[in-house]
């Protein structure tokens, strides 16, 4: 399946784009992250949470939706 991934904050700086679509044949969110980690090695050192169809999910959650988002914490104020 094709999934669209949105990147926020400094994650978008690592990926150099705010959004991309990838081809995915696995099952779990963790498998999507494996693909992204090998594509963007710097991602390993970054903190973020993953949302699927606008809902925060866990690594072991099954990929069901078409849209994922990688969301880092912000500290600034």
């Amino acid at each position: 399946m094709r999934i669209t991934i949105k990147y926020f904050g400094l994650i978008a700086e690592v990926t150099q784009c705010e959004e991309e679509t990838i081809q995915f044949s696995g099952h779990l969110i963790s498998e999507v992250l494996e693909i992204l980690h090998s594509k963007y090695t710097e991602l390993k050192n970054k903190n973020f949470q993953v949302a699927q169809n606008q809902e925060l999910v866990f690594l072991e959650t099954r990929v069901t939706g078409q849209e994922l988002a990688l969301l880092p914490p912000f500290a600034g104020g």
């Binding site: 926020f8 904050g9 400094l10 880092p72 914490p73 912000f74 500290a75 600034g76 104020g77």
Partner: peptide, 10 residues
């Protein structure tokens, strides 16, 4: 809660 980073906010 509110937090900001460059051009983005939560």
């Amino acid at each position: 809660f509110g937090a900001i980073y460059k051009f983005e906010g939560q």
